[in-house]
Each structure stands twice: as C-alpha cells, then as structure tokens.
Simulated assay, not measured.
Amino acid sequence: MSNDPSDKDYASPACMASEIAPDYFGPVAADPVQSRDAERWRKAERSRLIETREALSASARKAADDAIASHLDTVLAERFGGAEGMVITGYWPIRSEIDLRGWMQRQAKRGVRIALPVVTARNAPLIFRPWTPEAKMRKGLWKIPEPDTAETCLPQIMLAPLVGWDSSRFRMGYGGGFYDRTLSSLRPRPYAIGIGLQSGQLRTIYPQPHDEALDLIVTEAGPA
C-alpha cells in the first residue's frame, strides 16, 4: 500500500478484493467505496497480467497471434458469411498486445473494410478511420499510429484488445474507458469481440455501471 493519504478512503486493500463476493461489485452498483475498491483491484490485476504477457517468448506470442487470427477467420465465416464488404475495426498493437496486423492485411485484400480507432480526446468515444496496407500513417495522441486521413467510418464489427476478461464477457483494458464509452454511444452498436490471451481470464473483473459487456471473446484457445 502506498503512503498516499487517499488510501484511507478504501474499505479494503487491493489484495483482498478477490476474497469479496462477486455480487459486492454488482454491475448496477454505484457506491463510491465499491467503485474505489474495484479500481484498486483492477489496477493491481492489470499490472500483473501485463507483466505476465510481456514475459512471453517471441515464439509464444507468434503462436498466440496465429491461433487467434485463425479463430477470427472461423468466426467471420460462420457468423458473418466471411464479412466481405463489412467494416471491421482492428487496432495497432502496443504493450505486447496480440498482433493482428498481418491478419488485417489479408482481410483487406479479400474485400473486408478495415478501420483503426482514433482517440480525439481523453474523455470522448473513439472514432474510426479507414485503413489499408498502403495507408499513410501518423502518430496519434499517445504516439500510436493512426491513418493519416480525415475520413471516418462506422464499424459493424469491433475488435477490442484486452488485458483481462471474465465469463460474462466484461473486458478489462488499460483503464481509460474508451471502448466502453464508444460501445455505449454507437448506434447501431457494433458486434464487439475482445482479443486477448486465455491467461487473462478472471473469475470476475468486478464490473461497474459504465462497463459494457462484449459479444464474444477470442483467445488462442478459441471463442468464448
């Protein structure tokens, strides 16, 4: 625990959150103490999961990338007729996230319309700009590459990178809330697929009122 005086406001330390009944952190709850407890627990779990992910060997990462790409091909074929002509939002990988750039290139070449997310402000939903393997790129808000164009598009399928996830398909990301805000604001809502490692599965992420459940999780072990 840090020496920050604000720590005194918490009902329990982060290491004890997993011992509390999951319904204590019900998704409809709005109790500020519960919310602070959940955020502290998530911060600790997020650090642990990222550290575990970054410790993977290059060959293990490549195997996970390839397995997830294959599973996504199956999902698109079985649920979306291949998704040709549809807009799918990918992402540019950071911090050892699953790398689907090769998969995005293959999809673009066969007629799927690929887009990438763009952060316009810290508390705003994401917008999406079209991408092709030949697209000119520029550095975005956090120096993450984004398409160098003013054109935007609306996704029908959204791939959301994740750090952790649970069986109710709630996603734990980096804590910025961008995908939650985006999913709650887009109409029609895109089919949202979380992309991450099987080792990121948690009993619960202690969902809060702002959290948006995804429609599917795809890991190297397959869809869930």
Rank of each mutant, 00 (worst) to 15 (best):
D66T: 13
K62Q: 15
A44G: 12
E78A: 07
I68F: 01
Q34D: 06
I94C: 07
P93D: 01
R40D: 05
A55L: 12
V75I: 10
T52K: 13
E54R: 15
L76F: 02
I20Y: 13
R40H: 13
R46H: 07
D73T: 01
G82S: 06
R61V: 00
S57D: 08
D73I: 05
R46I: 06
S59V: 10
V87L: 02
A55S: 06
T89E: 00
R95L: 03
R61S: 03
V28N: 12
S96N: 13
F25M: 08
M86L: 15
I88N: 00
S70E: 12
K43Q: 04
D31N: 14
D23L: 10
A64R: 10
R46S: 10
A63C: 08
A60D: 10
P22V: 02
R36G: 07
Q34F: 11
L56F: 11
R95F: 08
A83R: 02
A67F: 13
A77S: 09
S96V: 05
R61P: 01
A60Q: 05
R48A: 15
A77N: 06
V87A: 05
K43L: 14
V87F: 04
E45H: 03
H71N: 01
G26K: 04
A38F: 11
G90C: 04
A21M: 05
E54Q: 14
D37M: 14
A69D: 02
T52G: 13
E45L: 09
A58G: 06
L56P: 01
L72H: 02
Y91V: 05
I94H: 00
A69T: 08
V87E: 04
E51M: 11
A69R: 00
F80A: 01
G26R: 12
A63E: 06
S59T: 08
D66E: 15
V75T: 04
A77C: 03
V75D: 00
D66L: 08
A69F: 01
T89P: 15
L72S: 08
S59M: 14
G26S: 15
V87M: 01
A21E: 14
K43V: 11
P93N: 12
I68Y: 10
S47G: 15
P22N: 04
S70A: 14
